Amino acid sequence: MKKAIYLVGGGGHCASAIDIIEQEDKFRIAGILDSPGKIGKKVLGYEIIGDESEIKKYAKTDNYFLITMGHIKTCRQRRQLAEKISAFGGRLARVLSPHAYISKHSRIGSGTIVGHDAIVSAGVSTGINCIIATKAVIEHNVRLGDYCHISTCAVVNGESRLGNGVFVGSNAMIRQRLKIGEKCVVGAGVNVFQDLPSKSYLKFIR
């Protein structure tokens, strides 16, 4: 019997997550939690059944949860939701696309989602509640901190270290063996060739 999973956040990332969950065929989506104004609406046929204040209600039954909102400026909201779920006894699901390549020699943290056609190479480890999006590449021996978001087609090259809450935009590239401090934002299309101190913000300029 499939395990029940509740999704927290009903936006665009939620739709992507639903598709991965359906493909993985490990969990049964029991409902979505979002803002009160969205209750009753549906995402890909799954109903928004309540808001975030009801996490405690569903966590009591020892169900699984996945935070299905992306990195909105910072990871703060995702982190707060994860802490609330854990405090109430809920479990954070690990959702892995069957169309991704994930090395058996890697370690994926709880609450993390790996999208279609992503590559997670040998020796990689991720913290909790990371997003590794469609076609992202995480090369050998990379370490991702908690709440990192690696966007579509981004590449993190071998042996790099990313701190907690780092955002890497679509088609960005991080060179091998770099240290990226916590809460850095690397914009879409940016190539990074040197270490970054915490809270750095790099934007692609045409």
Rank of each mutant, 00 (worst) to 15 (best):
G187L: 03
R76V: 05
G158Y: 15
D146T: 11
G40P: 04
N191S: 04
G40S: 03
G109H: 08
V120F: 11
G50Y: 11
G187C: 03
V185F: 08
N171V: 09
L7S: 10
E159R: 06
F193A: 01
F204P: 07
G31Y: 09
G145K: 11
S170A: 12
V155K: 04
K135M: 08
P98R: 15
A82R: 05
I18M: 05
A118P: 15
G189C: 10
I131P: 11
H149I: 07
V95Y: 12
R28W: 12
G9S: 08
D62V: 06
Y201E: 08
G123S: 01
S16A: 12
V8Y: 02
G189A: 05
L96S: 10
I18Q: 13
D25C: 10
S125G: 12
V137Y: 00
L7N: 09
M173W: 09
L92F: 14
K60G: 07
I49M: 01
G127D: 04
P197E: 11
V95W: 07
F204G: 11
F65K: 09
A82M: 03
F27G: 01
D25P: 15
L33R: 13
I29L: 05
Q194E: 06
H71W: 11
S86A: 00
A133R: 08
I132F: 14
H105G: 04
Y147Q: 04
A100Q: 05
K2T: 08
A82K: 06
R79L: 08
L162R: 06
V142H: 03
A133I: 15
A17R: 14
G111Y: 04
S198I: 00
D62A: 15
S198V: 00
G127W: 14
K179F: 02
G181M: 06
R28M: 06
G50M: 06
A118S: 06
G90T: 14
A15F: 04
K183Q: 09
T112R: 11
C184W: 07
S151P: 05
G115I: 11
S106D: 03
G12P: 04
Q176F: 14
A17V: 05
E182Y: 03
M1E: 12
I119C: 09
K135D: 10
K2Q: 11
I20D: 02
V137F: 00
K3N: 07
D117L: 08
E139P: 01
G187T: 13
G45M: 14
D51Y: 07
S110F: 08
Y64K: 07
C148H: 07
V185C: 00
A93W: 02
D19A: 03
F88P: 02
I20P: 08
K56W: 01
S110K: 14
E24T: 13
G50R: 06
I113T: 00
K56C: 10
Y6V: 15
Y64W: 07
T61M: 04
V155I: 13
N191D: 13
I5D: 01
A87H: 02
H99F: 13
T74Q: 00
G89W: 02
G9K: 09
G90S: 12
